[in-house]
Design a protein around this nucleic acid. Structure first.
Lengths: 201, 201, 201, 201
DNA sequence: CATGAATGAGAGTTCATTCAT
DNA sequence: GATGAATGAACTCTCATTCAT
């Protein structure tokens, strides 16, 4: 039997991961059956189980990829963001608009499900913790740079501001789930800028 | 058993609601079977279904109670909060400490699951929207009062600040799920106060 | 406690029987729950079970009443029917039109269900057998009278003709269930008359 | 197990259909649980549901097969029946004796249940209507042929006679359910012949 | 006597997973 | 390597029946 290249195998894995993410995003982890994933992937049940040991394994892999992507995207954004306020607003833009028509898009919609799973699945929680701490570290660095430049008060704890920056992103995302995000972004972004960069307001 | 007082019936309903909330909080809506709920309630399957037409109905009732309680608790807090910063910090204290050993406690842990369900269940989403808008309205009122008193800049849009206040609560709650809430509250609260009430810092 | 009159008790029993028959006719024995019967009767579950030991008991009582009524109605018809053909046609008219707006009406629609049950429930089968033999006896008498009057050939076995008369009634009833009974009755009745009373055609 | 021949799959389906028909014939549609069918089929619950989407689907398939078989058998009989009387009598023989030890046998006993279901299930009713009209058409053709040959009076409406022929078959079948069919067939058949083919009596 | 809350076995159905081919 | 038929435990929900009040 012909040995298939590792690239080919990795491609198969990716294919399953992406189609599964789309399924999970549309219907949720629990309402999506493995049969749905199998059908969407175009493979057979046996094949899917060759690449992922179980449904939980597949969910874990998807969450990993989601977190990697998330941190990666934000890191790009930070390189061009000079201030905490811009960093937050860039992140909001990324989440609400920037991911349209991107292979990464389905993963975004999984966020609330991820938070839900994290409370019950310690492995998932740990992966999330690592990603969060990474983001918080990046945010704190940005705060420190801004403090050095004099655009942020020095009596603010960088780690505290980092937490708040993250909260501002997460909170807006949650609200847009429940309220619809109609234009609210503009007011929100403006207020964020006035609060975090009062001098520039 | 024959006809029984309405109080007794309402008590039974409450009993089921509370034990079910505990189950759902511990394991999630989907990983909790009705058999689990039945066992925890101490009643029979038939009895549980006498009070709730379906698992979804039970979940809906729990979310309703959770939202009612949430808004109610926050409303109490607002009565005694003079500033936006205090309002946010009171809410954080309420969520992280104030509900310990309260019949309301299990409901708090359901929050992420609620957000998760809201994306796929329009009825739940609508209920959440109503509660959110109520909270946002209360927050905006507090901002206006503070602006009238001169403790908050008047060039800030009250609705924008209200959104940010809500985000600060939600974001902290999410982070505490993933990071543990070790002491972080103090730094977070302090930073919130410095940002929202700069004059008092 | 006041002893309730036997008449009153019998009235209650009748009331349950009638409302239950309506339920069963509309939905079938199996799709009708005892809760449906209880609701329709306006009584409580306990009360219904005071009058009927079980659902099967209730079904049995309904079938009994149905068979009594059936035989009674047909007996009336026979008194005025001079010929086998008229007897059959009178019975058809009775089944298809004569029972409209009669308290007996719901029972008619139970016929196929009765046949269905008879194959599996020996008690019901026996009751049905008694009623059938009674009808067959009456039909045979009519044949004999007609033979004595010279309107039916004497080389026909009266019991055989009786079976055929019954079959003609039952068969038409079945066909009207499946085909709708649109006008078919007239052609059918006419052909029955020509076959059973050839001289009068 | 992997891909398997279509014949094998069809065989499985047949196997389930036959064993289910036996169960349903013995106990009725409603008193037979899917667990009974599963046990009798020798397969697992999941397998049965791979071939039939629901219990109703299974019942529908059984009724379809029953009606197909019925019409098919009767069609064979008509080819060799020269007169309406012979056609009816052949059908009676087929129903009472000819199906013993035939794979088709269990289906026959389902007839009353089919009539029962037809009143409440429009899909089933329609299928039955098609089969009935087919049979009636074949019967009417036989009557016309007999009229052309002069063995049946020409003043009889062929469709009316066809209905009566069908009724004679159905009625005898019903009576044999309730009365037992001991010897009655001979008298019945004889009387049918004398009435439908008076010249040959 | 009447009530109706409570019961719990069992109904139909699903679905993550396996393994013979 | 890939397949997909087969599995069977577990799911949500129903309903005939009982009995404390």
């Amino acid at each position: 039997m012909p040995k298939v290249s590792d690239t080919h195998l990795a491609g198969r894995r990716d294919q399953i991961l992406s189609t599964a993410a789309t399924c999970f995003a549309a219907q949720g982890f629990h309402a999506t059956s493995m049969a749905d994933v199998v059908r969407a992937s175009g493979l057979s049940a046996g094949s899917v189980y060759r690449y992922f040991a179980s449904k939980d394994d597949l969910i874990g892999a998807i969450i990993d990829r989601y977190l990697e992507g998330l941190v990666g995207r934000f890191a790009q954004a930070h390189a061009t963001s000079s201030s905490p306020a811009d960093t937050v607003i860039d992140a909001l833009r990324l989440l609400t608009q920037g991911l349209q028509d991107t292979p990464f898009q389905p993963f975004t919609q999984l966020m609330p499900q991820f938070w839900s799973e994290a409370r019950r699945n310690e492995t998932i929680r740990q992966r999330g913790e690592i990603a969060f701490r990474l983001l918080l570290g990046q945010f704190a660095d940005i705060v420190k740079r801004a403090q050095a430049q004099g655009t942020v008060q020095t009596n603010l704890e960088p780690s505290g501001v980092a937490q708040i920056m993250l909260a501002l992103v997460q909170g807006f995302f949650l609200q847009s789930i429940l309220l619809g995000q109609d234009a609210a972004l503009e007011v929100y972004a403006d207020t964020v800028r006035r609060l975090l960069s009062p001098s520039s307001g």
